[in-house]
């Protein structure tokens, strides 16, 4: 199948030495939804900026719709639609005026333009509000208008940078439906960035996990999950964990990939529920008391944990802490990564 997006070895260092991208590469087949998943600050938005010609890579190449983003930026802009993180609608203009101006910038005029705008207003359930000022729209309506703006010129490739960040849960689910319908009906290629695991799982047929400027895993959500055998056991300890729990659990048969993350102890087992009694006994023998135990089937959380050594929430919450080396710590060494509160990622 044709690749709608091909990125190879993208490197970007911002002034001050912050290396946002450290060799990102991936391939997106035409007509599919591709998810770039990672915590805040992982490099997703920088990747999108480079692919949409807003920013230039220091090294590496990228082609979008067959066009080189560095050499043919104008042609790339004609082929893409971009929906950024912010609701980039002009509040002082009506929804219709926003769309009309956007269309004119792509060279649409006259009846072709007004018909396209009417279509989009209809499809994004904005027809009734079309002639009201966008500043009066709800967050969900502004977001829909924003997506409509990205579609005015019938792009081949649509970039959605965190399309549901800041939306209420119900609005988010409605947005997901909107996006799947789009991809299905228009044959669009969509590149979507998200730091919601659930969103990537729901929407993307292929995804890449980005961490600290690198891609640490790539595949379909199912493939990635299938790499993980068995169930995930999560144990909430009464106090902060101690290193000896590793040894204690190592002695329990069938339990592997033990990782300590603050008060949370993660492990995998082929038969999670069966392993629990032995695990608890082992912890008790070390004098570690347990507050709660959960057993769950593999999810993208686990994929993330396995490839980066951190839970998704701790990476998302702790992204402010500088960490220069792009290499992901191996599982089990990331216990100090910190809190597991916050972020509401799921």
């Amino acid at each position: 199948m044709n690749a709608a997006i091909e990125a190879e070895g993208l490197v970007k260092t911002y002034p001050g030495g912050v290396r946002a991208l450290d060799g990102v590469g991936f391939r997106v087949a035409a007509g599919t939804i591709f998810g770039l998943l990672g915590p805040n600050g992982a490099g997703k938005s920088t990747t999108v900026k480079i692919l949409t010609t807003l920013s230039r890579a220091d090294a590496g190449t990228a082609r979008v719709a067959g066009l080189d983003v560095g050499r043919e930026p104008v042609a790339v802009r004609r082929a893409i639609g971009v929906v950024g993180q912010k609701n980039a609608v002009d509040g002082e203009a009506t929804g219709r005026e926003n769309l009309l101006l956007q269309g004119r910038l792509y060279g649409l005029r006259g009846r072709a333009l007004s018909a396209r705008v009417d279509d989009l207003l209809e499809r994004f359930r904005l027809a009734d509000a079309a002639d009201r000022f966008a500043k009066g729209y709800s967050g969900g309506m502004q977001r829909r208008l924003d997506v409509a703006l990205g579609l005015v010129a019938r792009p081949q490739v649509l970039f959605l940078d965190e399309p549901t960040t800041g939306l209420d849960p119900e609005v988010r689910v409605a947005m997901w439906e909107e996006i799947s319908t789009l991809a299905r009906e228009e044959g669009l290629t969509i590149l979507l960035t998200t730091h919601y695991l659930e969103e990537a799982d729901q929407l993307a047929s292929q995804l890449a996990i980005v961490d600290r400027g690198r891609i640490v895993a790539e595949g379909s959500p199912e493939q990635l999950k299938a790499e993980l055998r068995g169930d995930r056991i999560t144990i909430e300890l009464d106090g902060d964990g101690v290193a000896s729990v590793h040894e204690a659990l190592a002695r329990v048969g069938g339990v592997r990939e033990v990782a300590l993350d603050g008060r949370l102890l993660h492990a995998r087992a082929d038969q999670g529920a069966r392993a629990v009694p032995a695990v608890l006994a082992a912890l008790e023998s070390e004098g570690v008391s347990v507050a709660a135990v959960t057993v769950a089937r593999a999810s993208l959380d686990d994929v993330y944990l396995r490839h980066t050594g951190r839970t998704f929430e701790s990476a998302d919450a702790g992204h402010a802490a500088p960490d220069g080396d792009g290499a992901a710590a191996s599982a089990g060494e990331a216990g100090a990564a910190g809190e597991t509160t916050a972020s509401g990622s799921r």
């Binding site: 807003l54 004609r78 950024g84 910038l105 792509y106």
Partner: peptide, 13 residues
């Protein structure tokens, strides 16, 4: 600040 400038910059404007 609203992201409108960047939205225009990714069009052929």
């Amino acid at each position: 600040e609203r992201g409108i400038l960047d939205r225009f910059l990714v069009t052929p404007s």
